[in-house]
């Protein structure tokens, strides 16, 4: 169980995070979703006892991150933001090193990392620096898990990793969760929010909303439509100049549009677009996603 109360931290004059409150249940997969510089890493470093909060309190499985930092360091597995393993050591040597540092062996906890480690085991003699992005990430996760931590803290594990490896990584996290490990993960990719049990949307050092992904999506208060025409760039321009527009954002092949009115008048909108020489106008009502919600909260 993790409980974070009123955490605040500044570096010099810059306020990094403030008013941070959340709690995480055992075996819950909790996500911190937000762009770079939002304060995710600061929160994680406070929780892993690497930095001290200016104000507030954080308790991990009964241990205070400030007072009981020694205990904290035994029960957590931590994967920092950048790849931080020894590039000049082989896969096996890295894992062995972290096992001995935590006073255990690979064999002792092999069943926990088996699923993940099996995939990189064929390359166990290879230097970590020569692994591909996806493999590095699997090795880093194996190293973070080797001492059977109760809580796993993963800082942007999927940043810069391609879509396939990202998918695999989230599958691994699901399986770890089933083994009873509490997982705290941060990511700048909004689409990964739906893979968490609950998420906190964070921006500029503030948590904007905490809930299950479903509830967050449900709480989107506007009617949302996807608009598409032949000239998307012009469409975006024209929509932004439309007097009824609340927001218009590109989303892949479509533009997600909300109106200042509680109900969108499709006909009126279509008329406006036709007047502006748009052809093949498609308008569909859609369900908001996390990214829509995030941007709504930002504005």
């Amino acid at each position: 169980m993790i409980s974070v109360q009123n955490i605040k931290k500044s570096y010099g004059d810059t306020l990094a995070v403030s008013n941070i409150n959340f709690s995480v249940e055992q075996a819950e997969l909790f996500g911190l979703i937000g762009p770079d510089g939002a304060g995710k890493t600061t929160i994680f470093r406070i929780l892993t006892s690497l930095i001290l909060p200016d104000e507030g309190k954080a308790i991990l499985n009964g241990y205070d991150v400030v007072k009981d930092y020694k205990k904290i360091r035994q029960i957590i597995g931590y994967m920092p933001g950048r790849f931080s393993l020894y590039q000049d050591l082989s896969v096996e040597e890295n894992l062995n090193f972290f096992a001995t540092v935590f006073g255990t062996t690979i064999e002792e906890n092999y069943d926990l990392i088996k699923d993940i480690y099996k995939q990189i085991e064929p390359f166990k003699k290879r230097r970590a620096g020569k692994l591909s992005g996806g493999m590095k990430q699997k090795l880093a996760l194996s190293c973070a898990l080797i001492h059977k931590p109760e809580i796993l803290v993963l800082d942007e594990p999927t940043t810069g990793v391609d879509a396939v490896s990202r998918k695999e990584f989230w599958d691994m996290l699901q399986r770890l969760k089933e083994k009873g490990i509490t997982i705290l993960v941060s990511t700048p990719y909004m689409d990964e929010a739906s893979l968490c049990d609950r998420v906190a949307l964070i921006q500029n050092g503030q948590i904007m909303q905490i809930d299950t992904p479903d509830n967050i999506v449900k709480s989107f208060k506007h009617e949302l439509i996807a608009v598409k025409t032949e000239n998307m760039h012009k469409l975006l321009h024209d929509l932004r100049n439309f007097s009824d527009t609340h927001s218009a954002f590109l989303f892949g092949q479509n533009i997600h549009y909300t109106s200042i009115n509680s109900k969108i008048n499709n006909e009126e909108l279509k008329h406006y677009l036709q007047k502006n020489n748009h052809k093949n106008i498609e308008i569909n009502k859609i369900q908001a996603n996390i990214e829509d919600c995030f941007m709504e909260l930002m504005t």
Binding site: D36, G160, F249
Partner: peptide, 20 residues
């Protein structure tokens, strides 16, 4: 080369406006 990694969703879209 991955110009928008880690950038918030609104700024990411503003970036694409510049690209267009």
């Amino acid at each position: 080369d991955e110009p928008t990694g880690g950038v918030d969703p609104i700024t990411r879209r503003q970036f694409w406006d510049l690209i267009y």
